[in-house]
């Protein structure tokens, strides 16, 4: 079958070489990162496989869960929920001024705006559990420190998400109000709030779902909730108690996810 004129091997090489060079460059960088990382953590497939049985035997010791222990878990479970609720609630309130300051269409002052955004981004880099560990050391053991940690985290996360929604609102309703002579407060109340309220509520609930998960492990750094008996059980090698706690935690997280979904339907 005729194939038109044959393309020179030179041309073939040119077309296929560009690709190879790019790939080679990326490969060298990636290889460097991996060698550096693997050496840093002492990565060894052999060791991972060798120790795997002891990991599984540890899991095996957790079976069956100590069902009787579940009765003692009600109080810490309730505390876990309360920590998450209060942390999310205070966060959702404290977030309001921060959101307004970190939205460039509300805060016209560049310095205040960048300060608020910067503060938000700095606080966001630190995980909740580090806040909890720091507060436990600074204020003391207990659920109060856990709640404050969650409050800090919720404030910045909700503010980040909501301020982005706020910056994207449409100006039609605002201009309409301006046209009929509304003042700034009226404009916020009737043109801005209705536009971002659904987003704000939705983000708050989303953060609440994260917070429930976090508050189940706060106890591992001494900040209250169901993690406290978990920490104790693990320290005392009571693995069947630990597995009971983990099981209960699972159920709690799933139940809250479900409830939060329902709540979303009602509120949003």
């Amino acid at each position: 079958m005729p194939q038109g004129k044959k393309v020179k091997a030179q041309k073939v090489a040119r077309v296929f070489w560009v690709d190879r060079l790019k790939k080679l460059g990326a490969l060298v960088i990636i290889a460097f990162i991996y060698i550096w990382s693997a050496r840093g953590v002492g990565f060894s497939l052999l060791e991972i496989i060798r120790e795997l049985p002891s990991f599984f035997s540890l899991l095996g010791e957790m079976i069956p869960p100590n069902w009787a222990y579940s009765r003692r878990l009600i109080a810490p479970l309730v505390e876990t929920i309360q920590i998450a609720i209060l942390g999310s609630f205070f966060g959702a309130i404290l977030t309001i001024p921060l959101t307004l300051l970190a939205a460039n269409n509300v805060t016209r002052n560049k310095y205040i705006y960048f300060f608020a955004k910067g503060l938000m981004n700095i606080f966001r880099t630190i995980p909740e559990l580090l806040y909890a560990a720091i507060l436990v050391a600074g204020i003391g053991l207990g659920a109060f420190s856990g709640m404050l940690a969650i409050t800090i985290f919720s404030t910045v996360v909700i503010a980040k998400l909501t301020s982005e929604s706020l910056e994207a609102i449409s100006y039609g309703p605002l201009e309409a109000l301006q046209a009929v002579g509304g003042n700034k407060l009226q404009m916020i109340r009737y043109a801005v709030v209705p536009q971002i309220l659904p987003a704000y509520t939705s983000y708050s609930l989303y953060v609440f779902e994260i917070n429930i998960r976090v508050s189940t492990v706060l106890g591992l750094v001494g900040a209250g909730g169901i993690g406290v008996p978990l920490q104790t059980s693990l320290n005392l090698f009571r693995y069947q108690n630990a597995s009971m706690i983990i099981l209960v935690t699972f159920i709690l997280v799933m139940a809250i996810d479900y409830a939060s979904t329902k709540l979303r339907e009602v509120l949003v």
């Binding site: 990565f43 991972i48 120790e51 990991f55 035997s57 540890l58 492990v217 591992l220 978990l230 983990i246």
Partner: peptide, 25 residues
């Protein structure tokens, strides 16, 4: 997904010993 990684971390520290490998796992 529901299993907190900090708890996994504790298990791996218990079986692999303290250190970065437990964190990796």
């Amino acid at each position: 997904r529901t299993f907190p990684e900090l708890i996994l971390g504790i298990f791996f520290v218990a079986s692999y010993g303290p250190g970065p490998l437990a964190g990796v796992m």
